[in-house]
Design a binder for these strands. Structure first.
Lengths: 195, 195
DNA sequence: GTCGAGATATAACACCGTTATAGGAGATGT
DNA sequence: ACATCTCCTATAACGGTGTTATATCTCGAC
């Protein structure tokens, strides 16, 4: 029953948006009563937290599935693709993950934040490999990964909001050039001049 | 009365978050009945749209107040500061502006999108000045401004979500280095090598 | 077979957005 | 001055929401 509720909740959230995710609607859809939500989760916000945590787990899986090549910079763009695909696969869930806008009084908690940091750790690893390979200037890998993430999340967020349409072909005019320019600024000068 | 409702709604949204912004609560707070919301705006979503539009107008004003110097790149960072300060001054309103998460069935409309594009136009102008001055590589100014905006919005969004804490001092380790590296990647090579 | 614990269903409370309806205030026309 | 007409307001109602208390049920342990 627990799983059934989670599945149905994620489906409702993904298909019809946050407003469709109500205790009663969910109970009806799952063929039970509203009490199930309280006995299994303790309330709607806690259930949403579980969905968010699951969203982060799926993000981790998706990034982990990106193959590791001998070109860390190329790997970074592959991670970016995986990240964006995750957001586009479940835009509503992504919005809840990062939208400070609350969904039914939901607020980020330590548990999900930890899962989110796990995903961030993967990115830090790729960045560190880039530094070890001499492709990125040596620096704090977490800081560099954070910069990459900020830019990537910014584009994805604007894309989901519809604001990316300030240009005709956002992916080829915004996303990839932005990451390329950022990586160029982050690149190891020696490697760049030697190329 | 119209203005009174808008002021009170913005106050409630800013002080207690989206969940506090209800028709009944707002009417009570403004000393009237719920009907006022419908006679003046036609419903809660339309009222939220007005608040969002006002938010964009305030953003435009804030950016317009940034002084124009003879260093367009420095101006860009000043615009970034103004942008970030706008978001931090009213985080909830910023979240509604860009959060694809709906607030009471609210959805972005053409009218507010136009006001948002006005703000974006200011940024395009600064970027174009940077190209004219030979500080930025010549390119489509809208695309470059969009890249800058994506990165900036990404950091601000993560900051409001609380995810910027992946590093100790996010502003000095994430925001400014990210923008600096992006600008370095965008800079005119001739100017850079000549420096 | 009985007992006890956990999950479920029902009903209630207060709140929500929205709408229909009735009343009031103020301007306008005669 | 009076009547009318329009705009705004207040009240009440409908269906929906999250949440809680209470009662029932089911099922495993002894």
């Amino acid at each position: 029953m627990r799983r059934r509720l989670l599945e149905e909740a994620a489906r409702l959230l993904g298909e019809e948006g946050p407003s469709a995710l109500s205790t009663r609607r969910l109970a009806r859809e799952a063929g039970t009563s509203t009490m199930a939500v309280y006995t299994h989760f303790g309330g709607m916000p806690a259930l949403v937290r579980e969905i968010v945590a699951e969203g982060f787990r799926r993000l981790v899986d998706r990034v982990a599935a990106v193959p590791v090549t001998d070109d860390p910079v190329r790997d970074l763009t592959a991670v970016a693709t995986a990240y964006r695909e995750h957001a586009r696969a479940d835009p509503q869930i992504y919005a809840v993950m990062f939208g400070s806008a609350s969904l039914g009084g939901y607020r980020l908690h330590d548990e999900e934040l930890d899962v989110g940091l796990a995903a961030f750790g993967q990115l830090v690893d790729v960045v560190r490999r880039g530094m070890d390979a001499g492709r990125l200037r040596r620096d704090d890998p977490a800081a560099v990964a954070g910069q990459f993430w900020s830019a990537l999340h910014g584009y994805v967020s604007l894309e989901l909001s519809g604001f990316h349409l300030v240009v005709e072909d956002p992916e080829s005019q915004l996303l990839w050039p932005m990451l390329a320019h950022l990586l160029e600024g982050l690149s190891d000068d020696a490697h760049r001049s030697g190329r």
